[in-house]
Amino acid sequence: MTSETIAASTASRSANADPSTVAGRDLRLLMIVPGVLVIVGLFVYPFIYGFISSFNPQGENAEWLANYQRFFSEPRLYETVGKTLWLALPVTILNVGLAVPFAFMLRTPSRGQRLLSTLLVIPMTLGTVLVAEGLMLYLAPNGWLNRSLLELGLLGSPLRLLNNYWGVALSLLITGFPFAFMMMLSYTTGIDPTLARAAATLGASPMEQFRRIYLPLLVPGLTITFCLTFVQAFAVFPSAVLLGAPAGATRVISIAAYEMAYEEYNWSMASTVAMVMGATQLVIVGIVLGLRQFSYRGPVVGGKG
């Protein structure tokens, strides 16, 4: 029996009396049910629950909007939004801004490219806590970084990079850049290289090839990379506590949410902070995706393969 006849006979079989179909429905669809249940029960439901509970403040006779009123009237709460954005936005712009030219330069497959991507997964895998531990030693006044800069004569006195903005920003760079680079690399390698060659034969210099061909085609990937990198940076938590000034410059929004839940035990207020966090992320993502509407979105190859 050849494979065609098998396929044909199955086709006719499933049309008549396939054992796995009941009343025209494919029972194999049931395989998706446990997965959906997990996500609905543990992700969608808690989200809705948190949303509703943010409008049910704890305490007697509280107004339904009391939590939000509190958030936006207490400086130590509402200021966290600005502080988190002030960390997340510049670092994300830097991460993505560097990832684009770097991925572009390294887009031709080679052994070096493979080795590099392997090395870059390491900080992503280790996670923020371990990177924070390493940075605590590395960035310390007597750490290797300051010591090298002092020995090279580039500095008169050690840089203060811990317990302030810079420590957190650097940790976001170290965990965020590899992610942004890998995403941009996979977008860049997806663009048909003959397009750039065609542009070259038409007189485009390397700079123009990048600006006129690659950049417009990379915009969709760029926006998605930006959104994902930003959202990760906006949720910064352990490094903001360990490397930053959790009561000052790096009092990010997740610290506020954590305090509400585990120090004040005000779960409804904690959910409120979480909702504000989610909404801020959504707004930024919305703006970025909105900007994308103005760019070309379609295939990135130059014709039939």
Partner: peptide, 20 residues
């Protein structure tokens, strides 16, 4: 439904989830 939990940072949905 399967993609969103991968893209939303855990700390954002972690607090309502912990509450539940």
């Amino acid at each position: 439904l399967f993609l969103v939990p991968l893209m939303v940072p855990p700390i954002t949905y972690g607090i309502p989830l912990a509450t539940v």
